[in-house]
Design a protein around this nucleic acid. Sequence first.
DNA 1: AAGAAGTTTTCCACTTCATGGAAAAGTACG
DNA 2: CGTACTTTTCCATGAAGTGGAAAACTTCTT
Lengths: 253, 253
Amino acid sequence: MSGVQSVDRALDVLETLAEMGGEAGISELASRTGLPYGTIHRLLRTLLARGYVRQESDRRYALGGALVRLGGVAERMVAVWAQPYLAKMVELSGETANLAVLEGDFIVYVAQVQSPRRLRMFAEVGRRVLPHSTAVGKILLADRPDREVVALIERTGMPRRTANTIVDHEAMLEALSAVRAQGYALDLGEEELGVHCLAVPVHDGERVVAAMSVSGPAERIDALDREELARGLRKIADDFALELAPRFSRPGG
Amino acid sequence: MSGVQSVDRALDVLETLAEMGGEAGISELASRTGLPYGTIHRLLRTLLARGYVRQESDRRYALGGALVRLGGVAERMVAVWAQPYLAKMVELSGETANLAVLEGDFIVYVAQVQSPRRLRMFAEVGRRVLPHSTAVGKILLADRPDREVVALIERTGMPRRTANTIVDHEAMLEALSAVRAQGYALDLGEEELGVHCLAVPVHDGERVVAAMSVSGPAERIDALDREELARGLRKIADDFALELAPRFSRPGG
DNA sequence: AAGAAGTTTTCCACTTCATGGAAAAGTACG
DNA sequence: CGTACTTTTCCATGAAGTGGAAAACTTCTT
């Protein structure tokens, strides 16, 4: 049906490796992917020779440096494609629109289109922040199971950025379940006082791969109808997702 | 020889796509890689179905979003592996050591080990800066042909950060050819007054994939023997490179 | 220190699966 | 509307990947 098996399997191995935190042994990979040992080993050797995977001293395998380069180029591409969709969000809301992804434990702002207003958000493309105090962060965390979220916030802590920042594990998990129910996330001055944001997810079939948001002065954001804004943004984000990964489903061939 | 052909070829396609700026048509890929049309098409379909490649409206292909995720995880891994080497650099120089890569048009600081001194550099992991005003940036640019460098600085401009910043195309190209000759790069307060850096390349066989540097107060950096420091850092960077991509060459098997 | 239990790695006969040439379909250009 | 180019599909052929099981290592146990 789809494609070249060995390539598909190699990608399975790579993705499984990523899911396991970037590091795993052959048997772990075998049990997760269901592929036979020999096959995985051969695949890994191929990836190893190309630098896409690396072997640690304890003979386990980990994701390799070659992916960093490709990932960087791809990220730039995504930022370019997002531009027109972000522009639509600006048009809809009048506020600055952002695209962000979760990279490791950090939120990275990948692209932005500025609001035409005089008072508007700073350019923050490239900026890295912790997820807990942003709307885009909550969107991306909400896609993860609670135990992963807890693991992440235990690694990073939940530094208080403002009086409104959520700094409590319980409160965060509750907030995330609200996000899951609503389909959008808010940041009401949790990262910076006076700045409010509303973020929506970008789905890639199964997963949430990115988040898009609009942000601006508290009064202006609060003046908008949240549900309506969320609906509008979600529509745009879904269109973008569709362009990103157009899972073609032709009935018979 | 090495590994699974279809996987190797898929990686060739992906890498070629990246070299062409993240976007290309099948025939361009065919002429670059030497692979037959049918094969490339099949490979691309496989990658497409998985989101590693994306098809634009004009039927050309581009790198896809799935790479961003993998790249992010891999980047975190690299940062972890670099830690001990950065620590050695700190030990050697007494100054804060950094690992940086070129991501799109920006330098990203991926990892850092702080100097034990009281007066030392800020933590700047995750920070993005333009290449022209940093030592790591010059190292990474120096690996590129002049026309690519010019294209990049025409896109980004060369904003003056301090009185010492190089803001002239000619001067930059000269500086880069000096870097190529010396094997290390300097930043003498070009990004921030009073802060000097010395950077060395991390080679992956052919390419420079990253740069490592030490940075600190001008007086302390200038007090060190540059050539000797460069030699020491280069040794450490080479060891790191070797761990990153240990091209195994066993004579007979 | 020696054995046990768990890895990872190598090997090889089998046949599935990828191959690639060339023709068909689709697009852009004049 | 026809020409030139690119992308996509097709299919007989055999090269190339497969995967079970055994060998070589490592690490944990007693």
